[in-house]
């Protein structure tokens, strides 16, 4: 299998490239609108840089990995569709649900597969929880209290023109994809608040989202870039799920061991299970190789963007917003 990379602005591209190399996928070339950044990346990774998107897409390969700034996801996806390449696009799928729909339609029209990089549903704890939900081991779900914390990534993430929004966008999509995967719930109302810890920030770095779903399930979500610099890992994706006959709490990022080192006097935490990014990329490669459905579809991506954009609207307009 051969892959082209479109855009390297998102830091996930580094781990994706490592995984692709490990899996024996050939990376035919890399495009980015920023030639300096693109060339630097290619030098580090030993890859070939293409300043022309068209030239890269004219090569013979199977799929593209899109890791550009969010604002270019749609354009790059549409061009990949026209070039008949399958697509793995970083989350959030696009800046708004209208753009997501256009991407879904284009992929169907050109008969290419479109997958959105939502890794949390691939983690071991989420897979384990999925079994509990599907087998109704604790009955039906009643309510969910969840959080997705991280650190402020800076750079283009905090420029709303390029990112479409801050923590409210960046993290809501992670959790809502996990919720969609686990429960397949339809959202009915969204109510959200956001905050900038520093007034000079152009985007919010803290957000609280409340959602009620069509079958009475309620959810609260803390979606924030508020982990301090000293926090031992990047963040978390905690789900507390209240069922009819019990309660489950997991960290969707995986299980951690705590590491106490008297020499450095530091405490660190290490995720020890198989890496969710790796499992996600495997899922994509397998679907393309075997021509089976990708594990996270464009429709799944749209589900999360629709909720995130409604949350942003709710927070801006300070009212509860119905969602269809």
């Amino acid at each position: 299998m051969k892959i082209g990379i479109l855009g390297i602005a998102h830091m996930h591209v580094n781990s994706y490239v490592d995984i692709l190399k490990k899996q024996g996928v050939k990376i035919v070339g890399v495009y980015d609108h920023n030639e300096v950044a693109g060339n630097n990346f290619c030098q580090q990774e030993g890859l070939e840089f293409y300043p022309s998107l068209e030239e890269l897409l004219n090569l013979d390969f199977d799929a593209v990995l899109i890791c550009s700034e969010n604002v270019y996801h749609k354009e790059l996806s549409l061009k990949a569709c026209s070039a008949k390449k399958h697509i793995l696009v970083e989350k959030p799928m696009a800046l708004n649900s209208k753009d997501c729909l256009e991407m879904i339609v284009a992929a169907k029209k050109e008969n290419v597969q479109l997958m959105v990089a939502h890794p949390v549903r691939f983690s071991k704890p989420v897979r384990d929880l999925k079994k509990i939900v599907d087998k109704k081991m604790l009955g039906c779900v009643i309510s969910i209290n969840t959080s997705n914390h991280g650190k402020n990534p800076g750079g283009w993430f905090i420029n709303p023109v390029l990112s479409g929004g801050g923590a409210l966008i960046d993290h809501t999509v992670h959790i809502l994809d996990t919720i969609n995967y686990l429960f397949g719930l339809s959202p009915k109302y969204v109510s959200a608040f956001y905050k900038k810890s520093d007034p000079s920030l152009q985007v919010e770095d803290s957000g609280l989202v409340g959602i009620s779903f069509s079958d009475g399930v309620i959810l609260s979500l803390d979606t924030s870039w508020n982990r301090p610099k000293s926090y031992p890992v990047w963040g978390d994706a905690v789900l507390e799920v209240v069922f009819e006959k019990g309660y489950v709490i997991i960290d969707g990022f995986g299980r951690k061991m705590k590491f106490f080192d008297n020499q450095s006097m530091e405490i660190s935490e290490v995720f020890y299970e198989e890496d969710m990014d790796s499992l996600m990329i495997d899922g994509f490669i397998e679907a393309i190789k075997n021509n089976t459905a990708v594990p996270v579809t464009g429709e799944d991506g749209l589900y999360t963007v629709k909720i995130a954009e409604t949350a942003l609207k709710s927070a801006t307009q300070q009212r509860t917003i119905p969602i269809n």
Binding site: Y72, E75, L78, L95, D99
Partner: peptide
């Protein structure tokens, strides 16, 4: 502009 928008350019 129409062409750019059709191409998905932001």
């Amino acid at each position: 502009y129409k062409q750019l928008m059709d191409e998905g350019y932001p």
